[in-house]
Nucleic acid binder design. Structure first.
Lengths: 343, 343
DNA sequence: CTGAAAGCGCTTACAG
DNA sequence: CTGAAAGCGCTTACAG
């Protein structure tokens, strides 16, 4: 909280300096065509001379508009979300919005607080990647949000809202089918928190793919963990301890997969050689890690762009029907799963 | 720009509902102690019932304060900057600030526009990582910023301001000395744009380290490039084309180093075996790429925290003296340079 | 194009 | 603790 060092120059002062009315000056800052070129130039010159800075806050207050958008993501050190954020920025900036950024680190409390703060700041809309364990209270809050909003990446039960995500189930099916084609029969599913919709959808895909291949699920091969690198390390250690270890693993996300590969290496297992590894997200690192990671692209940037577009449409249109955009994931085969298994 | 669907509940309405004056309600939202517990509870209940949302924008306008901070970084897909951003967030959130995020992607125009937008939004302060080719015009603008500001990562000539960065020269010296100790004599300096202060400082460190070892600089071994992964790829290809290629390379940043390693691999050279590679920044990927990358830690997160702290102090203190915080970089030795060269 | 007035939702300052 | 008034910097609506 601060006081400005110098007092801001006001539109009033500009008007006086240029010898016009405040109303005229106001028309000029808003680019109204109904001002003669001559007065416009005069006023613009005065603005420059006095160092006038438009007070968008005051203008928004008076006109009951907003030029800000709140974006709430989970984790800024996860490349998936930074990619998404780039997509959001790309779209929103061309519409003249400025973005408030908040990161929850998957804490429901922080999410709740960020929502409040953004509403207090009169954001014109909110793009929210909800935390995994979003509480009932917060869900109610989101339901009654009186600003346009779109959920991204993860859906929330009972919240009717625009949503942009990927078909996780389909993505996992593609991944598991690929592993099956490589000759694998014992395929584990590592990582992710079981409560989240993103996990459930992936689990569904895993189930379907195995079912279609006539393989029944071995519960021992499903090992949840935190959706982090260290979660992956633990899951890897755990999976090596079961009586009959898998020959291939599907990981909840690339981040988890990096941890899994690290965990395997720590136990002397060579990922891509001894055990095939597949991730999910296709973050940038997946093409430069060792071995390069077979993964499923979830088009983070596109999610961001689509979410921004949805939000913009809501703001402009005010129609009440809700859109759901579900992107089709794509398999990217790399070294970590390229070794065929002789059966 | 949008109209709210529902009209916001105002403090006036809350006051009427609770049967108190608007002034009293205002005292309560601001947590003033001079209100009896009984009325406070009554009013808080009314707020909850009516779904009141504090309008921080209106409050800030009236009291001429701000609760927002603008943060302008270069590239959000560069882990160095996301780490920095995490540091900034950590510090600022505990002081109740909300952050506007802008990314320049090293475009002077975008930087200029972001600065304007943030000022129009009445930010209480600005943390700026200036773009490499910041123009005279923008520099003048920054000089006359009438909000508190701190520069981070990169200094700007002729701008007197708080600054937080690392001793790049020292960092490079540590890196090059390490390579010398490993028995290398021909050490290249790859990547970075020659105009930037960050490049010049690194060049200075490179020069000093070689000079101290009695080695004169071979201009052929200094190959600038864009500060990106693809810049690194190109620089690697280029350095292999010179008549007597180096046995070790120092790279402008980890990002460049990843590109360099990729570029070397493409030409059949094994980084860490055939040519030693050292980076700068110690981003997270550097410990998981292959080979793991020897690098110099520049403590991005700490830069962010310190910059936020500086800014906060400026806002609170309003003293005019300027602080410079220069962090001491640290060498992190990994596989990419661990092979001793027999001389 | 101009001028005078009202108002966005708050806080401030002051008399009671 | 309350009430009435003024004001932050803008936009709006309206009569000229």
């Amino acid at each position: 909280m601060k006081q400005s060092k110098r007092k801001r120059v006001t539109l009033q002062q500009v008007a006086e300096h240029a010898g016009v009315s405040r109303a005229t000056a106001s028309l000029i800052v808003r680019n109204s065509p109904s001002v003669s070129e001559k007065t416009r130039k005069k006023v613009l010159a005065s603005m420059k001379e006095l160092g006038y800075v438009y007070d968008r806050i005051a203008a928004n207050l008076r006109s009951q508009t907003s030029s800000t958008i709140g974006v709430i993501i989970t984790d800024i050190s996860n490349t998936f979300f930074t990619e998404l954020l780039i997509g959001v920025h790309e779209e929103l900036e061309k519409d003249g919005y400025t973005v408030f950024l908040g990161t929850t680190f998957d804490s429901d409390n922080r999410q709740d607080q960020l929502l409040s703060t953004m509403l207090e700041h009169r954001v014109g809309g909110i793009i929210l990647c909800p935390v995994a364990g979003t509480s009932e209270d917060t869900i109610r809050k989101i339901q009654h949000l009186d600003v346009p909003s779109v959920l991204a990446v993860r859906e929330l039960p009972e919240v009717e809202s625009d949503y942009v995500g990927v078909d996780y189930s389909l993505g996992v099916q593609k991944a598991v089918q690929h592993l099956l084609q490589q000759g694998h029969k014992r395929i584990a599913f590592l990582g992710g928190t079981t409560g989240s919709t993103t996990w459930k959808e992936r689990m569904e895909g895993y189930r379907l793919a195995l079912e279609n291949a006539g393989i029944s699920i071995d519960e021992e091969l499903v090992i949840p963990s935190g959706p982090t690198r260290s979660g992956g390390v633990e899951a890897a250690h755990q999976v090596l301890n079961i009586s009959e270890p898998p020959t291939a693993v599907f990981c909840f996300s690339d981040l988890v997969a990096f941890g899994v590969m690290q965990g395997l290496k720590e136990k002397g297992i060579v990922p891509g050689e001894d055990i095939a590894v597949v991730g999910f997200d296709n973050v940038m690192e997946s093409s430069v890690c060792h071995p390069t990671l077979t993964t499923v692209s979830s088009f983070a940037r596109q999610i961001g762009k689509d979410a921004a577009r949805c939000l913009h449409n809501q703001i402009v249109d005010k129609k009440e029907h809700h859109h759901r955009i579900i992107l089709t994931p794509q398999l990217v085969v790399r070294e970590s799963s390229s070794k065929k298994r002789s059966s």
